Amino acid sequence: MRHFYRGDGAPPPPWPLRRAVMAAKRRAMEDFCERWESGGAGVRQWRRRTAGTAGRPE
């Protein structure tokens, strides 16, 4: 990930901030899927993704 951020010369954002932004995006996507098809495949997939990344270190 550091190579990605080095492209513009700026340091990467702190991990807690990146993790919070990713979590918010996952929640938003899960909410969208829930509105589209309550309890559907999309909802289940976003829940699996959230569970799989919840404790991931940087």
Rank of each mutant, 00 (worst) to 15 (best):
E34G: 05
P11R: 08
W36N: 07
A51Q: 13
A10Q: 14
A51Y: 07
T50P: 00
P12S: 04
E58D: 15
F32V: 01
W46Q: 02
A24S: 11
P12I: 00
P16I: 04
L17R: 15
A41L: 14
P11G: 11
P11D: 07
W46G: 00
R49F: 08
R48W: 05
D31W: 09
M1G: 08
M1R: 13
F4K: 08
R35I: 04
V43N: 02
E30M: 11
P16W: 05
W36K: 14
G9S: 03
R2C: 03
W46T: 00
P14I: 04
G40P: 05
T53I: 05
P13C: 02
R27A: 11
G40Y: 06
A23M: 05
W46V: 00
L17W: 12
T50I: 12
A24W: 07
S38D: 13
A41Q: 14
G39Y: 11
Y5A: 01
P57N: 03
G7W: 02
Y5R: 01
H3T: 06
D8V: 02
C33R: 07
R18Q: 14
E30W: 02
P57K: 06
Q45D: 04
F32M: 12
G39K: 11
A24K: 13
H3G: 08
Q45M: 10
D31M: 07
M22Q: 07
F32C: 07
D31K: 11
A51S: 13
G42K: 04
P11Y: 04
A10T: 09
E37I: 09
L17D: 14
R6P: 00
A10D: 08
R35K: 15
A51T: 03
A10H: 12
A23N: 10
P16Y: 09
D8C: 07
H3C: 06
W46C: 01
